[in-house]
């Protein structure tokens, strides 16, 4: 089985995230980069399926040079190889452009399963997996809280507002995972050493056969007009309970017309 896992490098969850004042894109220099948390769950799920069914796991990322750190992390968790699309002209790509680039890299490589996280922690759009499925014309099995593979058929539990749907398809398929699905492993020392020798294919947009006019900030289908830090919230009223905390809270809710 050939499995791809798409991972994105994002600013560290705990860091304050900012937009750049010059072109309103994410300031990736302002914080350490880490693998998008949900993508770790996607890598884990791919490795578990590989352990059970055999095959190869390839990491795919689009991002600047330093996204190589995230590639290494995925390889040290146990993935076999990676493809890194890096090109200055990708800077500022929106969701349409990103899905175009990822779908083009994946197309024709014979992947049976293509894993994603269900949401990135920086832009939080939750659209790229569905867009890649649309572009490739393959089955969309997203928001999976459980994945089962049997022969060439894949069944997932798709998380819904109140429960889940069981969804089935034949390979190839695009999957995205939610955090409930597993507990990602930590890279072992051996894994970290082994990762250094694993093949990473670095592609420019020309290498990947991508059309530059469809990529980057100037081609974007959406533009940021302006942005501002939200005005700091006025400090609230904090009281200490002295036996009447609930009553004071009720008084507050009454002044705010909630009761």
């Amino acid at each position: 089985m050939k499995i791809a896992v798409c991972v994105k490098q994002v600013p560290d969850t705990w860091a304050e995230k900012k937009l750049r004042s010059d072109d309103s894109t994410l300031d990736r220099e302002a914080a350490d980069g880490v693998m998008n948390e949900l993508d770790e769950y996607a890598v884990e799920e791919a490795l578990k399926l590989q352990a059970a069914h055999g095959g190869e796991v390839t990491i795919v990322t689009m991002g600047p040079e330093r996204a190589g750190e995230t590639v290494r992390k995925a390889l040290s968790m146990g993935a076999d190889a990676a493809i890194h699309l890096v090109d200055d002209s990708l800077h500022g790509s929106d969701a349409l452009a990103t899905s175009y680039a990822i779908a083009t890299i994946l197309d024709g490589r014979g992947f049976d399963l293509i894993f994603f996280g269900s949401e990135s922690t920086d832009a939080r759009m939750s659209v790229v997996p569905a867009m890649v499925a649309e572009r490739l014309g393959v089955a969309q099995l997203t928001f999976a809280q459980k994945v089962d593979v049997s022969g060439t058929s894949v069944t997932i539990q798709r998380t819904t507002d109140y429960g889940f749907e069981t969804v089935e398809a034949s390979m190839p398929a695009v999957l995205s995972v939610v955090e409930k699905i597993n507990e990602p492993r930590y890279p072992s020392f051996k894994g970290i050493m082994a990762a250094k020798k694993k093949p990473v294919e670095t592609l420019s947009i020309a290498d990947a056969g991508l059309d530059a006019s469809q990529l980057g900030l100037s081609a974007a289908w959406t533009v940021v007009e302006d942005f501002a830090a939200r005005p700091p919230k006025a400090a609230g009223t904090i009281v200490t309970d002295e036996g009447d905390g609930g009553v004071k809270l009720a008084d507050y809710l009454a002044t705010q017309k909630f009761i």
């Binding site: 609230g236 904090i238 009281v239 309970d241 036996g243 905390g245 609930g246 009553v247 004071k248 809710l253």
Partner: peptide
């Protein structure tokens, strides 16, 4: 608490039932 418009420092098992009673009363 940094985000709170109103906060109560206290044991929720004291504060919350009292609040519920108070809401029902009003």
């Amino acid at each position: 608490f940094e985000l709170a418009d109103f906060g109560v420092v206290g044991d929720l098992f004291q504060v919350v039932p009292q609040l519920t009673e108070e809401i029902k009363k009003r």
